[in-house]
């Protein structure tokens, strides 16, 4: 038997002990059974190593979901995800980032409608935690720009930047998970808009108002300040573009700027 076929059969047997390969005499015969322990039990060790380690990788990114949905429930869901979605590379930094889409259609999670958005937030946090280290745009760099050019400015957000728009109060969930050791969570009927950012070492979650969210989304898409601001009703008194820019320059939301058309 060629190495290629051995590895293919080994993989299939790990994933499904009932698979044809495990029943296949030729495949079984390449393994010794010298100390009296069955092939099935020996494969169980590998199955456990593979599924357990991958499940742990995904679970480690979901501490808040674990607290709200319960450890046992989440572990079952993650196991189901892992068996259907093996990693395609050895770099597991973002392995599990497609879990939110999985849990959104996972039948047993139907009674927890907020769970897909919560896992989306947790993965944005995880992606920010491992994002490439970059520097915040130095506000002094903007000082040299003449006033007429300001509307044409574009900003590139930091590598850790992410926006979350949810129909559920994720900010309250975060607060509950971090600050309430136990007790029951009451889900209020409102949505929220959040920004995830890692300015230096610590990942931050900021609550955004609707205008901020609209502007940041537009800037993220590569729109100019002028194009982004045009999305907001000009009669809206709450809106202050200068204050918005100052706030996000101080927070370190942007990595760079450009004046290219």
């Amino acid at each position: 038997m060629k190495l290629h076929d051995i590895q293919q059969g080994f993989k299939d047997t790990i994933l499904d002990p009932e698979t044809a390969e495990a029943e296949n005499e030729a495949f079984r015969n390449i393994f010794k059974s010298d100390t009296g322990i069955s092939l099935e039990n020996r494969f169980k060790v590998y199955r456990n190593n593979v599924i357990r380690s991958l499940t742990d990788v995904v679970l480690a990114a979901l501490p808040m979901t674990k607290k709200l949905a319960g450890e046992k429930f989440l572990e079952q869901a993650v196991r189901a995800y892992v068996t259907q979605n093996l990693p395609d590379k050895a770099d597991l930094t973002l392995y599990g980032i497609t879990f939110p889409a999985f849990i959104a259609t996972y039948e047993p999670a139907r009674s927890l409608p907020y769970i897909a958005d919560l896992t989306r937030l947790e993965w944005a946090w995880e992606a920010a935690y491992y994002a490439a280290d970059d520097q915040a745009l130095d506000p002094d760099e903007l000082a040299a720009i003449d006033e007429d050019s300001l509307p044409d400015l574009r900003f590139t957000p930091r590598s850790s930047f992410a926006l979350i728009d949810s129909d559920y109060p994720l900010d309250e969930i975060v607060d509950f998970c971090r600050n309430t050791p136990d007790g029951k969570f009451t889900l209020h009927d409102r949505g929220c808009k959040l920004m995830v950012l890692r300015p230096y070492l610590k990942v931050q979650i900021h609550k955004l108002d609707d205008h901020e969210f609209t502007l940041l989304s537009a800037l993220q898409e590569g729109k100019t300040i002028h194009e982004a601001a045009a999305l907001i009703d000009e009669d809206d008194d709450d809106f202050d573009l200068a204050a918005f820019l100052q706030k996000h320059l101080i927070r370190g939301t942007f990595a760079s700027h450009s004046l290219e058309k």
Binding site: Q7, Q8, K11, V50, L54, L86, D88, K89, A90
Partner: peptide, 8 residues
């Protein structure tokens, strides 16, 4: 093996 990394 193939496209799968088994992490063991």
């Amino acid at each position: 093996s193939g496209n799968a990394h088994l992490n063991d």
